[in-house]
């Protein structure tokens, strides 16, 4: 566990005011025996694009700070919207607004929930596309001293 509780990494590329950072494995994995099994599964190393106010150069070791607000917005979009859709879909059937014939009532609720989930997912997708247009707003690098 590093003292500051923030991920560390090495800058691999600098482009304008953006820095590409290769993250070292996060603290959750640090002591996990199955790390080697699951790192390839999740796409190998994690690299991120981050804002670079301190002009870190290639090869510098930096800490990466999460910009809490945008990341939260992102996860709220990513998980919250589909979940809300799912919930609303189920409520529609549960409240008797829609009747689905030939199915067990629970299955009907679930299917309608799935449709809501899909709708929420599409909305989230669209929202995230818009949010992600400006790279570097989610993370900031700070030089490690």
């Amino acid at each position: 566990m590093n003292a500051s509780g923030i991920d560390q990494g090495v800058v691999t590329k600098v482009e304008g005011h953006l820095a590409y950072v290769e993250l070292e494995s996060g603290d959750a994995c640090e002591s996990c025996g199955a790390r080697n099994l699951c790192v390839p599964l999740s796409g190998g190393t994690r690299s991120i694009v981050a804002a670079n106010p301190e002009n870190a150069r290639v090869g510098d070791r930096v800490t990466v700070e999460e910009q809490g607000q945008p990341v939260l917005t992102l996860s709220a979009l990513q998980y919250g919207l589909p979940l809300l859709g799912f919930f609303i879909g189920i409520l529609f059937v549960y409240g008797g607004l829609i009747r689905i014939p030939f199915l067990a009532p629970e299955l009907g609720m679930f299917l309608s929930g799935l449709i809501g989930l899909g709708g929420g997912g599409v909305l989230a997708w669209w929202g995230i596309k818009r949010l992600s247009r400006r790279p570097g707003r989610f993370f900031t690098v700070r030089l490690l001293r």
């Binding site: 691999t12 590329k13 590409y20 080697n36 790192v39 390839p40 190998g44 190393t45 690299s47």
Partner: peptide, 14 residues
């Protein structure tokens, strides 16, 4: 972790 990841990062210019 492996040659595959390295190849990926090569193409990305990282």
């Amino acid at each position: 972790p492996g040659c595959g990841n390295f190849a990926e990062n090569l193409t990305l210019g990282k």
